[in-house]
Computed example of a mutant assay.
Amino acid sequence: MLPKRSDFPADFQFGVATSSYQIEGHSFGGAGPTHWDTFAATPGNVVRAENGAIACDHYHRWEEDLDLIANAGFDIYRFSTSWARVMPEGRGPVNREGLDFYDRLVDGMLERGLKPALT
């Protein structure tokens, strides 16, 4: 038998977590190359030569994804930023398109009553 939410203290926070490269889709939003792109492109490193170019397409499906999280009754969404999306060259100016994505994502969490937990 699985525990029920009521089996936990009233202030217990339930959350879900993702990692940017594995969920967002790294070929969108002006992201620059990462070591994961290089690793995934090396023959034999990844099953079926899969990569993070599209991943789960969270970059385009974030609203639907946040609805799923909120409707499942979670309190917190722990997510990471892709620094290659924020600073595609690794230094220099930030990528406005990348920052706008994370801004929309955080606003979407707040609209749904989810607490953002950025890593």
Rank of each mutant, 00 (worst) to 15 (best):
G113F: 07
G90L: 05
P3V: 11
G25P: 02
A10H: 09
L114C: 07
E50V: 10
H26Q: 15
L68Q: 09
E89A: 15
F12Y: 14
A40D: 14
E50I: 07
A53K: 05
R96L: 13
G44I: 02
S20C: 08
D65E: 11
L66G: 08
A53P: 00
P9K: 03
A41Y: 00
E111D: 15
F28V: 04
P9D: 10
P88Q: 04
A49E: 13
G98Q: 02
E111L: 12
T34S: 15
P116W: 08
P116K: 04
N71C: 10
A55T: 01
V94Q: 05
F14L: 15
G32K: 04
D107L: 10
P93D: 13
E50W: 07
F101L: 07
R5V: 12
D37C: 01
A31K: 15
P3L: 14
D37A: 01
T42Q: 12
H58A: 12
H35W: 11
F28H: 12
F39L: 14
V86C: 03
L105Q: 03
E97K: 10
V94S: 09
T38N: 05
R112P: 14
R91K: 13
R104S: 13
P43D: 07
P3A: 11
N71L: 12
R61K: 11
F74E: 04
W36H: 08
F14Q: 08
K4S: 14
H58T: 13
N45D: 04
G30W: 03
E97H: 06
T81A: 07
Y102A: 02
L2M: 11
R48G: 10
G52M: 01
S6A: 15
M1H: 09
S80Q: 06
G15H: 08
L105M: 10
E24A: 05
A117G: 05
